[in-house]
Each structure stands twice: as C-alpha cells, then as structure tokens.
Design a protein around this nucleic acid. Structure first.
Lengths: 206, 206
DNA sequence: CTAGAATTCAAACGATCGTTCCATGCAGTA
DNA sequence: TACTGCATGGAACGATCGTTTGAATTCTAG
C-alpha cells in the first residue's frame, strides 16, 4: 500500500494514523500497522519504543504544524483594528478544516482527533496538555476578548461544546459529499463558513 | 462493586456499560467486565452469546426507553398550536440530558454513546439503524417543518453537526461542576436551556 | 421428593496481543 | 579488509484475548 521509498518511520506513522482512525487505538494492533506499512513488526518498538509512544508521535506529527498554523492565523486576526468573534473562530477552524480535506492522510488524522476526544484517555490528555496547552490558552484569551459579556465559567462551558462540535463535524467531512460542480476549495470555504456561522451563533446566543 | 441481589444479566450490563464508557469497546475485556460484575467469565457468552451482542444489549437497554421518551416529548410538542424549533430541540435534548445526569449508570451510558459516534463501527451503526431509524425520521420531519427556509441537504448537514455537538456536550456533563447553591434539577434545566439555545442559534443561522 | 431444565463454575482452547532477543545485512571509517 | 554503528529480519516470550467445554450446582415444575 505504501511506497517503499519513504522512510520506515514515516510509513509506520502513515499506517498507524489510518488504522487508528478506522479501528481505534486499542482496536488497531501493531501487527496490522506493520503489515500495512510493509515493515517488520519489531520496527515499531525500535523506532518508537512502545505502542503508546507511537500514538503520541502520530499526534505530534500533525499537531505541531496544525497548531502553528492556528497561532499564526490568530496573530493575523488579532492585528485587525477591531477583530470579531468570527475572526477568532476562523483562525481555529480553517487550518483544521484544510487538514481534514488533505489528501495524503490528513483526513484520517482528524478522525483520530475525534476519537481522542471521545476516549478521555488520561495519558493522552496529559500528552496533549503538556505539548499544546499554550495554544488553547491564547485562543481562550482571544475568545474572552471577543465575548466580553460572558463570564469565564460560561465561556469555558460554551467553548467545550464548540470544540466538540467542530471536531465531530470535521471528522465527518470526508463523508459529506459536496454539491456537483463545486470545486474542493469552494466546498471547504462553504463548510468553513457554515461551521463558523454555526459556532458563532451558539457562542453569542443568550 | 455491584450489589449481588441483582440478576446476573443486569450486573453484567451495568459493569459493561461503565467499562465501555471508560476504556472503549475494544479496550474493555470480558474478564474485566465479569470481574467487576462478580460473575463467572462464561456468564457473558451464556446470557448474551458474544461480546458484540453484549455491546448491542448495552445500547438497547437505554435507547429503548430514551427514544420512547423522545418520541413522547415530540408528540407533545407537535400538539402545540404553533410549535417552534426550540420545542423540537427540547424534545430531543431533555430526555438524553436527564439520562446523562442519572445516578445509576445513565451518565456512563451517554459517554458510551459518544464513543459510538466516534467509532463509526459498521455493525454498530447497522444495529442502531435497524432499531431506531424511525425515531430519527420523525425528528427530521419535525425539524424540516420548523426550519422551512432550509433545503433538505442543508438541514441534514446542520443536524449532523448538532447531534454530534449535543452528544459530545452531554457526555462531558458529568465533568462540568455545577455552581454552588444550585440544585441538580436547576443545573439540568440551565444546561438544557444552554444546549437548546446554542443548537437553535446554529440551526437558524444564515 | 424428584426429574429435568436452567444456571454457574473452573479450566482450558486456539488466537492474538505488545514486547524482546539475537542474528543478519549494510552503510561508512580506519 | 576488518571494524563499527544503525537498521532490519525471523522467532519466540509471557500475557491476555473471546470463546467453548463439561461437570457441578441451583432452581422449578410435577
């Protein structure tokens, strides 16, 4: 399935991402992963140490760039003389949406992300918190600035719903068929508009 | 953990629900389930035939009554001279929200439900479709009536986001602490209002 | 009370899990 | 050419998986 001219590590990561998306972290075995990647079984423990560490690296590979893109987009949005809620949401949604429509595996990763949400795995949450909590913090601050009428507890509560909804929606993006005669870029823009409009309306409501 | 004066089947279902919520369907073994239920390992295959059938029965036990309550609430809402979007959403959300705040295991089941959403398991989806598609149909018809300005494709698209968002939100309800000095019933009502307001705003937006 | 059905039990089945070991292949260096 | 390092190979480790078996036990109807 995977071309042999990529490195062993990369092919393992690609196969792991795809199989974790389809069968979950516990449901996909290292034998399935290495068979799909066409590498030896022992290669996983040689290159990654353990299955759990492989899971972490699957996340790190995508989240490093994804969160950089998000922070860059947020910084751009904050430079606007008067930025609004939609600008903050756009900075959060659009990079992930682009990833979810990526052809070389990114779509699978967003489904892995949705699984991680549902898992509530303690070690996985610790890993994500240790590595990416600064991103969440900056966005919470920006949301608080754009939604001054919400107290902190109410804001957290609504952001929790929004992030869950967005993750779920983006994970299903591969399933939803786009209208005939519409390019993929158009479809992505339309989807982003819907998501942002939807989330903004919910956040502002009340 | 489980009182021994309940039937073997019921104790297995209780333990399975709790462990599936915490570790997933593949992650929770039948040995963990039967140990927690304090029954013999073979009891699962004796009473349920297989692990997969046990999973189905975990869903059936809660969804039978949950969907009955939803349909009853929807029928009541439709009797109103002019029902609105919020009434339909209320009929959908409130029974599930009550379950998610139930003390005897219902809270765990909603997390199981969120997992099923993320799983995209084919056999599980078939089971849910075979048993409860008529409920979804009635709600879609009611939503279409309350949102006449949305075409069918747009409605499906938004309902997909809404149901995913609501499931995620309700699954996390156990985590969110209620304000001090507020009764649980008050907290549930407040949460229902927030969810409905949030979902309604998103559905009506644009 | 007893025969027969229903249930529980300990034990084991083969399969598969993550992990480990050690030999082998293959660079680049002295 | 011999040595050294990393990388890969096949094979096996002990543990655990879902499932099955057959005997022991409990329940129930006549």
């Amino acid at each position: 399935m995977n071309a042999p001219h990529f490195s062993t590590k990369q092919r393992i990561l690609d196969s792991a991402e795809s199989l974790f998306a389809r069968h979950g972290f516990a449901g996909a075995s290292l034998r399935q992963v290495t068979a799909s990647a066409q590498v030896n079984l022992a290669a996983v423990n040689y290159h990654f140490g353990s299955k759990e560490n492989l899971i972490n690296e699957v996340f790190r590979r995508r989240l490093d760039t994804l969160n950089e893109e998000r922070l860059a987009a947020l910084a751009t949005a904050l430079k606007k003389p008067q930025f609004g809620l939609e600008d903050v949401l756009d900075a959060f949604v659009r990079p992930a949406l682009a990833l979810s429509m990526d052809h070389d595996g990114g779509a699978g990763f967003v489904r892995v992300l949705a699984r991680a949400f549902a898992e509530h795995n303690e070690r996985l949450r610790k890993f994500l918190h240790d590595n990416y909590s600064h991103v969440l913090k900056q966005f919470v601050a920006a949301f608080a600035q754009a939604l001054p009428h919400l107290d902190k507890q109410e804001l957290y509560w609504r952001l929790d719903i929004v992030s869950g909804a967005l993750t779920y929606a983006m994970a299903d993006f591969g399933v939803i068929k786009r209208r005939p005669g519409m390019s993929e870029a158009q479809h992505r823009n339309l989807a982003a508009e819907h998501l942002i409009k939807f989330a903004a309306a919910g956040l502002k409501a009340g």
